[in-house]
């Protein structure tokens, strides 16, 4: 339950910090850190416009998307405190619950009958498919390394390993960070600030959403960032007492947000055609971790 509260708090500030970082780097004054949350709150109060073409799918999709993210959030542990739901193989449930949200966001983009929606949907479906193997192999190698198969047990056992496990944890951080970027359609994959529909992925899928639904989608985005941030934090904190880990949690989330902001300030988006290769390359990084785990366990004989 602790992780739920922490992730929730981190999510409130996360996208604000990213945009603040970006504004500092580009020399603008920029909005305050709370601005994205204020926007979302305003959206929640606003009315909505629906497309004539859309059906019940379009109405329920944002709800299911948001709920799937909240459900995933309940599974994430924090240090020695388990998530609300924790069992052997909970990370499979985690990934597949997120897939439910993706499924609905894809079909809701197709529901509007606009050609833009189709574009975004097709890209999202393809890219998220490529991102998933990286996650499963990453967790698989950590499971192999620690001999456990639930999030909380893996993370707490990982910390007790040797120093080399920290090297692996750093690689894992990279993979998780990139997955977070893909899941949230951020910079190297997708440019959230682009103004051309033809080059969008996520933005073009939610083109028709407005009001409460848009608020749900945006807040789900913030939560997703914080969830992956929490997973990254978990790689390092192990079973330290709370008085260290809780500040560490916020510091790490803060650093991740700044990293994302920096990446977005200094990098350009990849060409759409190269994205798939890039994303699949993450799987090879995961495989690297897998072989690292094999080395540590001495199975390479």
């Amino acid at each position: 339950m602790l992780s739920f509260a922490l992730i929730f708090i981190a999510a409130i500030f996360f996208s604000g910090i990213i945009s603040r970082t970006k504004s500092i780097f580009s020399g603008r004054k920029g909005p305050g850190i709370m601005q994205p949350i204020k926007d979302i709150m305003r959206l929640f109060r606003k009315g909505a416009v629906y497309s004539q073409t859309s059906s019940f799918v379009f109405q329920i999709a944002p709800t299911i998307y948001f709920s799937s993210v909240v459900m995933a959030m309940l599974i994430v542990p924090f240090g020695q405190s388990k998530g609300l739901i924790s069992f052997n193989g909970d990370f499979i449930f985690f990934a597949y619950v997120l897939a439910l949200g993706k499924f609905f966001s894809i079909i809701s983009a197709l529901d509007t009958g606009s050609s833009f929606g189709g574009m975004g949907a097709s890209r999202e479906a393809l890219y998220s498919m490529f991102a998933e193997p990286a996650f499963f192999i990453l967790i698989g190698s950590l499971a192999l390394l620690t001999g456990h198969s639930s999030f909380q047990e893996i993370f707490s056992a990982l910390h007790l390993g040797s120093y080399i496990t920290y090297a692996l944890a750093i690689l894992a951080t990279f993979v998780l960070l990139m997955i977070a970027m893909i899941e949230n359609s951020r910079m190297p994959i997708d440019d959230p600030k682009t103004h051309l529909e033809l080059t969008m992925i996520h933005e073009v899928m939610i083109l028709e959403n407005s009001g409460f639904d848009l608020g749900l989608i945006l807040s789900a985005g913030c939560l997703k960032f914080a969830i992956y941030g929490a997973l990254i934090v978990n790689l390092f904190i192990g079973i330290f007492p709370y008085e260290y880990t809780i500040p560490l949690f916020f510091i790490t989330q803060f650093l991740i947000a700044i990293t994302i902001g920096t990446i977005e300030s200094f990098m350009a988006r990849f060409r759409m055609g190269h994205n798939a290769q890039f994303i699949f390359a993450l799987t090879s990084v995961s495989l690297l971790i897998f072989f690292g785990a094999l080395l540590i366990l001495g199975k390479f004989i």
Binding site: Y50, Q52, G113, E208, F212
Partner: peptide
């Protein structure tokens, strides 16, 4: 709040 139906 107000909900309207418009073309795509």
């Amino acid at each position: 709040s107000k909900v309207t139906i418009e073309p795509t």
